[in-house]
């Protein structure tokens, strides 16, 4: 410390800043992230665990989830059957773990497909005036039908499979994304930087890809997480009422539907898939909430 040499005679220098302030706590990057975005961290961690369970299901001491064992039906949870067995003697633990795959596949596929399609429709609608009126009336019509009813109607038209479930839920979700993207596009179009781009000779496709779309990503990503959560719930609902994933494939909705008749005496058959579904949806919603706060502070205040 050489401050004393600079101080004129008879004057006392203030101590160095470093002496007054306590040393800054060195915190790891991960701890810093958890501190700043606790909901993203919690949601992300929970979702990662579910994702790992789905991917590594065959390695997690499961047996064939469709194997029947009528002699050992409706067993209570035990050391051998962690979550018990159902009315056909199938291992509920294995079925729940494999069911995670269906839920996540449906959730992620619907979120991706609905976002991409919604972006396409929304940009067309926001950019082409005459098309806008037509698209928006069609979307108004679709939004007047509850999503789950629309999905049931579409499922009734086709053979049940995971693909058709994904398509049916996507169709029901596209209008919401289109509306969102259209709104954002309409407001971005009027931004001075877009006007400046037009004035400097930028062609329309480049304006869309360089100036408009990158700025719609934040709200779309946020919306996609909420669609993912709602798609998982819709899939479970469809399976529960028998209009979704075929009963040969274990999905959380199917397992609950099959356990429904016995739930007063053997509640664990319904309980375990329900817990997994709730936790997964909670994780996705937490992630979405956190992303919304982090990416789009204006939206956070409104909602």
């Amino acid at each position: 410390m050489s401050t004393t040499t600079l101080t004129p005679d008879g004057l006392t220098a203030a101590p160095d800043l470093a002496d007054i302030l306590p040393p800054r706590k060195a915190r790891g990057k991960i701890m810093m992230f958890i501190y700043r975005y606790p909901t993203i961290a919690a949601g992300g961690a929970m979702l990662s665990i579910i994702l790992a369970i789905a991917i590594f299901a065959p390695l997690l001491w499961t047996v064939d989830p469709t194997a029947l064992a009528p002699a050992k039906r409706t067993r209570f949870p035990s050391e051998q059957y962690w979550f018990g067995t159902d009315m056909l003697g199938r291992d509920v633990y294995s079925r729940v773990l494999y069911g995670a795959r269906i839920s996540l596949i449906v959730g992620f596929s619907v979120a991706t497909l609905a976002s991409v399609l919604g972006m396409l429709v929304g940009v067309c609608s926001g950019f082409i005036r005459w098309l806008d009126a037509i698209i928006m009336r069609v979307i108004d019509g679709m939004m007047s039908i509850p999503g789950i009813l629309l999905a049931i109607a579409l499922m009734a038209l086709t053979r049940a499979s995971v693909q058709t479930v994904v398509i049916a839920i996507t169709v029901a979700e596209v209008p919401r994304v289109s509306r969102l993207v259209r709104g954002v596009v309409l407001s971005l179009r009027e931004q001075p930087y877009v006007e400046a781009a037009i004035a400097s000779g930028t062609r329309v496709p480049k304006i869309i890809f360089k100036h408009i779309l990158p700025n719609t990503m934040a709200p779309i990503i946020v919306q996609a997480t909420f669609i993912c959560a709602s798609a998982m719930l819709t899939e479970a609902t469809l399976s529960f009422i028998g209009a979704g994933t075929p009963p040969t494939i274990p999905s959380w909705g199917n397992i609950m539907a099959e356990g429904r008749a016995l739930w007063q005496v053997k509640p664990y058959i319904v309980f375990f898939p329900a817990i997994f579904l709730s936790v997964t949806v909670l994780a996705v919603n937490l992630l979405g909430d956190g992303l919304r706060d982090a990416l789009d502070p204006r939206l956070a205040k409104k909602v």
């Binding site: 931004q191 006007e195 400046a196 781009a197 400097s200 000779g201 100036h211 990158p214 700025n215």
Partner: peptide, 30 residues
């Protein structure tokens, strides 16, 4: 190319996701 514009609000007249180089290069490239 011959008539260009500078707007009032310096915060909304630049695309927040474009680097300065790309902003300035855009008309040249166009």
């Amino acid at each position: 190319r011959r008539v260009q514009v500078v707007f009032q609000d310096p915060f909304s007249s630049l695309n927040p996701r474009q680097r300065v180089r790309d902003v300035i290069a855009e008309p040249i490239v166009n």
